[in-house]
Structure formats: C-alpha cells, structure tokens
C-alpha cells in the first residue's frame, strides 16, 4: 500500500503532462480541423485541393515520424526552419495531425446535411456564412459526436507517443518505475489512469449526445 502511494506521485506528474498534451491538442485541432473542412467543401478548387493534399500527407505518415521531423529536422529546413523545445514541438505535431482527422469527420458531417436545408436558408435570405453558422454546423455537431468521441479517446492514448521526445508522460513515467523497481504494478496503475480518463470522456460525450437528442423524433 505504501509502495502504491510512493509511485503515485511520479505517475500523477506523468498524467499532468498527458492531460496537457491532450487538452491543448483538442483545443487547437478542433477549430483548425473545422477550418480545413470548410475549405475542403468550398468551391475554391485550389483551396480544396491543397487541403486534400495536406490530409493525405498527415494521415499517410506516422504521427511519431511527424513529431520527430518537427523536433529534429525542422531546424534544418531553409526559411521556415525553427528549433522548437520538446513540448511545443509535440503540440504542433499533434495539432497538425489530429486536425486532418477532425477535418474529415467535419466534412462527412457537413456533407450529410440535406440540400433542402441550404435551399430553405437561401430562400429566406441567409448568406452562405450564416447558413453554415446557424443552420448547418449546429446539425453537424450532433451527427459527428460519435466519431469525435472515438477520435478523442484515441488521442488520449496517442499522447504516449511523446516519449520519443523524452517527455515524461504517464506511460513513460510508469515504465521508468517498472525498470527501476522490477515490478509491473506501475503498468496496472497507468492502465487504471487511462481508463479513468476514457471513462470521463465517454460520460462527457454521452451527455452531449443526450443534450443534442432533444430534437430527435
């Protein structure tokens, strides 16, 4: 029991790092992904094409590779080359990567809204922007909650990839103790922590789904 309390400290510190990466990514990648999706469905062929290419690149290469690239290789790229400390480098990689996945979820949601909704808004005099903001996106949110919940839960666990930048997230903290003390107990505790985070997210999304169900038949 005492041992449990002893290892709880470092594991909680690791959890704090995990949560920071998770929350910052979510906070930045959702609006960025929405912007990408709006460009992707827009009639600007060039913008739509560029976004398609971007999504292909981000989904087509491993997140870990992207993180390593931003941390180790970006400083040597001419013109845009900057050296980022480990935490910002991780956040940038996660946001760029997750925004691509979120964009596709948003796009699916936007394209699932019937044409009649756009037409009704148009004959009432709403502009395209007003139609998106007031009519389409509020309905999209409801439809994309299940896939968003999926992706968000994946993000919690993907945060463990930041160990490649030698950052002490929950999993790396646990592994450190395992290697030091020759016990697998920290793994069990870490798993419990991940499960708790996932449970909270599941509850949160269930709540949102219930709230958006008011207009169901």
């Amino acid at each position: 029991m005492n041992y449990l309390f002893e290892i709880l400290g470092p594991l909680l510190e690791g959890t704090a790092v995990t949560l920071q990466v998770f929350l910052l990514t979510l906070l930045l990648a959702v609006p960025f992904g929405l912007a990408l999706a709006l460009l992707r469905v827009s009639h600007f062929r060039l913008a739509s094409g560029v976004v398609s290419g971007y999504i292909w690149l981000m989904r087509g290469t491993p997140l870990m590779l992207q993180m390593l690239f931003i941390y180790f290789a970006l400083p040597f790229v001419p013109v845009i080359g900057v050296r980022l400390p480990d935490f910002p480098a991780a956040i940038v990689a996660f946001v760029l990567n997750y925004a691509a996945y979120f964009a596709e979820i948003f796009r699916a949601g936007i394209q699932s809204i019937e044409r009649g909704q756009y037409e009704a808004a148009k004959v009432l005099g709403l502009t395209y922007g007003q139609t998106m903001r007031r009519i389409v996106l509020p309905q999209v949110i409801k439809r994309i909650l299940p896939p968003m919940s999926n992706e968000t839960i994946t993000l919690v666990k993907d945060t463990s990839l930041i160990y490649v930048l030698a950052m002490n997230d929950l999993l790396r903290a646990a592994r450190g103790i395992v290697q030091r003390d020759f016990t697998t107990m920290p793994f069990v505790v870490a798993a419990a922590f991940y499960l708790i985070m996932t449970l909270v997210l599941t509850w949160g999304f269930n709540y949102l789904e219930r709230r958006h169900a008011v207009y169901d038949p």
């Binding site: 009649g116 009704a120 004959v123 007003q130 009519i135 509020p138 309905q139 207009y215």
Partner: peptide, 29 residues
C-alpha cells in the same frame, strides 16, 4: 427575398423549435 418559398419536403430546420424556425431569418437576415 421578395419571394417566399414553400417546398415539397418542408425543409424545416430540425434543430430549431417551431417558433425558432420562424424567427431565425428575421433575426439573422
């Protein structure tokens, strides 16, 4: 905007109540 239109498939906004459907355009537009 001088012309109102009624569709075969109604095309009401499902996420808005009856009243909200009616006041949406006067408020937004």
């Amino acid at each position: 905007r001088k012309m109102g239109m009624v569709f075969q498939q109604f095309n009401l906004f499902p996420h808005l109540t009856v009243l909200q459907n009616i006041i949406e355009a006067p408020i937004t537009v």
